[in-house]
């Protein structure tokens, strides 16, 4: 080792930081994979924590609804307002409801809501579990013979996986209402006609893949947040780091999964 550099077998020199980062990255991927495997092992073994699952679903799902609803409304509204001038140039204003609805339901709704979800819920889970870890609450569960992984991790990952699709569905619906308002700001279209145009151009191939991918978004956000919190280092610094990295990695995974989902969808349909 020469200062901050390391000589490889073929004689070339790489900065040690770069190699270390790569090594840490692969270790982290391995650890998250192991954590995910443990989740699948624990999820099917009794005891099932239904009460905790319902509580987490309420916190993660219901309590996120106002933020998701406001965001959804704004997405629909802004998308319509932004699209109108360009559509008007081509005399295609009548296509705005169809275009906006397809954009929202296929991409904007799932991805935007998932990213906001990663920010709100992912950071919350990361910080909560990390705080429990550093204050020995997780150890306290373990020594009293309770499986903390099942109680804390399995319930939260299940809740994020089940709640995100519901939130996305709600956000899509509210976005379409936002789009309706946006269309009517500079034009006039009845509620009935607007939604007739929306649904006439929507098919199951638009809706189903978009909903399916949100299960994966929710799962990955849940797993990463729980992993970061559950394995936090000691101290308050670890709590902040867990919350931060839960959001960063969670959001990044949303885009990666979305990219894969788009490729798969285009192959199937």
């Amino acid at each position: 080792m020469i200062n901050n550099e390391e000589i490889t077998t073929n004689g070339s020199i790489f900065p040690l930081g770069w190699l270390d980062s790569l090594r840490v990255f692969f270790i982290e991927v391995g650890e998250i994979s192991r954590f995910t495997l443990r989740f699948f092992k624990e999820v099917f073994i009794p005891r099932y924590e239904f009460k905790a699952l319902v509580k987490q679903s309420y916190i993660i799902g219901y309590k996120s609804l106002p933020l998701i609803a406001i965001t959804g409304l704004i997405i629909g509204l802004v998308l319509t307002i932004q699209a109108r001038p360009t559509m008007a140039q081509f005399g295609a204003e009548s296509w705005i409801p169809s275009m906006v609805s397809i954009s929202i339901i296929r991409e904007m709704g799932p991805v935007m809501v998932a990213v906001i979800f990663a920010g709100k819920v992912g950071s919350g889970i990361g910080a909560e579990l990390a705080s429990m870890k550093v204050t020995e609450q997780i150890d306290a569960m373990e020594v009293s013979g309770i499986n903390p992984f099942k109680y804390l991790v399995v319930t939260r990952v299940m809740a994020t996986t089940l709640m995100l699709p519901m939130l996305v569905t709600a956000a899509d619906a509210i976005s379409l209402v936002g789009a309706y308002v946006g269309v009517n700001l500079k034009g006039s279209i009845s509620f009935h006609l607007f939604f007739l145009q929306v649904f006439s151009n929507l098919s199951f191939s638009d809706v189903i893949p978009a909903i399916i991918k949100t299960f994966f978004f929710g799962f990955s956000i849940g797993i990463v947040s729980c992993y970061k919190g559950y394995n936090a280092n000691r101290g308050t610094e670890g709590v902040g780091e867990a919350a931060n990295s839960a959001v960063v990695i969670g959001s990044l995974l949303v885009f990666i999964i979305d990219m894969i989902a788009v490729q798969l969808t285009s192959l199937i349909y």
Binding site: E136, Q137, A140, V143, G145
Partner: peptide, 15 residues
């Protein structure tokens, strides 16, 4: 473990 009680330094109450 159920036959062993553990009082942590911080008491580790579930907050």
């Amino acid at each position: 473990r159920k036959k062993v009680g553990f009082l942590f330094q911080s008491a580790a109450l579930y907050d």
